Simulated scan of single mutants.
Amino acid sequence: MKSVKNGRDGRTRIIEGALRRFSQDGVSATTLASLREESGVSVGSFYHHFASKEHVFGVLYAEILAAYQSEFVAELLRHEQARDGIEAVVAFHMRWAGEHPERARLLVSERPPRKHEPGGAEVAEARRAFFKKVSDWWKPHMKNGLLQPVDPTMCYVLWLGPAQEMCRLWFAGAHAPSEDEIKGLGEAAWQSLRQRGER
């Protein structure tokens, strides 16, 4: 039992250490040695859980993305009205970034793992399920003439692109968004995504 507990602790320490290092230095600049030092684990313990630095990143990215998407969908489903949902998700995105800056910085600044890379299959499957849930919420509003018919990429760009750029400025220390600015981002998203003639 003790070895199992230590094994779980070791994996958790590696993931938490990786989050700190990747968030601060970026994945490419983080060495395996610095990752092990930050985590406080031995070489043997590290390789017991992960095959490489890229493996750690893939697992970490997939876990962060899944948690974010779960909260995103939960927030979206709280709102039956199209405009309320669009604006609430932008506010949620900014709030989540403020509450989880290291995790948000990773999602904003790092390229997600591709399908053939560690964590890539999990990320692809999570995105498929995520877009299905968002689409299920979106389609009735589209059919009712409230929201535009847009593909997932354009939906993301129009809905959260400006908020993501605000996050980049925020994380770089260039600008801290005000409540009015966050509200303005939500209103801009609605104006971008509503069908013409809908107010």
Rank of each mutant, 00 (worst) to 15 (best):
K2P: 01
S3A: 13
K5D: 11
K5C: 07
G7D: 14
G7P: 05
D9G: 03
G10Q: 09
R11E: 13
R11F: 01
R11C: 01
R11M: 10
I15C: 07
E16H: 11
E16I: 03
A18T: 07
L19T: 13
R21T: 10
S23Q: 04
S23I: 03
D25A: 15
V27W: 04
S28I: 08
T30Q: 06
T31A: 04
T31M: 09
A33H: 13
L35M: 10
E37I: 12
E37M: 12
E37L: 14
E37T: 13
G40M: 05
V41N: 03
S42M: 04
V43R: 15
G44T: 11
H49F: 08
S52E: 08
V56E: 08
V56R: 03
F57N: 01
F57W: 05
G58F: 07
L60H: 00
Y61M: 06
Y61F: 14
A62V: 06
I64T: 03
L65P: 02
L65E: 01
L65Q: 06
A67Q: 09
Q69C: 02
Q69M: 05
Q69P: 00
S70T: 10
A74L: 02
E75L: 00
E75S: 06
E80P: 07
Q81D: 15
A82C: 13
I86G: 05
V89F: 03
V90C: 03
V90Q: 03
A91T: 10
F92G: 01
H93E: 00
H93N: 08
M94W: 00
R95S: 03
R95N: 09
A97Y: 06
A97G: 13
G98Q: 08
E99S: 14
H100I: 00
E102F: 11
E102S: 12
R103H: 10
R103Y: 09
R103V: 01
A104M: 06
R105I: 02
L106W: 07
L107W: 10
V108T: 14
V108L: 15
E110V: 07
P112M: 12
P113T: 12
R114A: 12
R114C: 02
K115F: 15
E117T: 09
E117S: 04
E117K: 04
G119W: 05
G120N: 09
E125Q: 15
A126C: 11
R128Q: 14
A129L: 15
F131L: 15
V134P: 05
K139Y: 10
K139T: 14
H141Y: 04
K143Y: 05
N144H: 11
L146H: 05
L146C: 06
L147G: 07
P149C: 00
V150T: 02
P152R: 00
T153H: 09
M154V: 00
V157M: 12
G161S: 13
Q164L: 13
E165M: 15
C167F: 11
C167G: 09
C167D: 11
R168N: 06
L169K: 09
W170P: 01
F171P: 03
G173W: 09
H175Q: 07
P177I: 07
P177R: 08
L185Q: 13
G186K: 10
E187A: 15
W190D: 12
R194A: 14
Q195E: 14
R196H: 13
E198R: 12
R199D: 15
